[in-house]
Amino acid sequence: MTTPAAVEARHLTRVLPGAVPVTLVLDVELSVMPGEFAVITGPSGSGKSSLLYLLGLLDRPSEGWVLIEGRPTADLSSDDMAALRLEKLGFVFQFHFLLPEFTALGNVLIPMRRRGTLPEPAMRARAAALLDGLGLAEHRDKRPDQLSGGQRQRVAIARALANDPAILLADEPTGNLDTASARTVFETFRALAHDQGRTVLTVTHDSTLAAMADRRITLVDGRLSRGA
């Protein structure tokens, strides 16, 4: 028996209905394996974010399917999808989206508390370790408005990793970072995939960074581009 792909898209299509329907993603066939680190590239407006939302169960396709660890998701209720996001998926958005009233540590604790499988001290220890690993040891107790853009983005990455997700999805996580920090983040991603067997799928515009990935997926006008 072969291990199923961590994330799989079959004939995936998303059209925004309206007077003039907008096609965001068109007929995408894709599978990413556990332990694989893949990047999605493509021009602005090519549908990279839209694809990521579909794969991350934040949006529902107009046609086609998304399978998570071999499990079809089309028939899941929105509650089931939420539960799956909580357990299996970590998200880093193009913009940081931290809760402003909570400290860096507090933000990282939110997914763990929601899930509630670890005792409080273990959650705190894990959150602290995640922040330390991303070079934020001294900034744990700062609130988002006391952090730089790059620091916030790293807190968001730590938060995405909080529940030890099998799949990490990131939408231009290094957009606000300097080259060195961006490299660190990508090295972290590669380690998460190669050393811990997770699946990492990230959007980037930076071809140097893209070169660090195992695989490069290119989107043009919502379709996979075979040429790249």
Binding site: G56, A82, L84, L89, L99, R115
Partner: peptide, 16 residues
Amino acid sequence: VRDIAILKSIGFAERD
């Protein structure tokens, strides 16, 4: 709204 979006993306259900 942004916080709500992030909470939902983390895995908060509608009822939460």
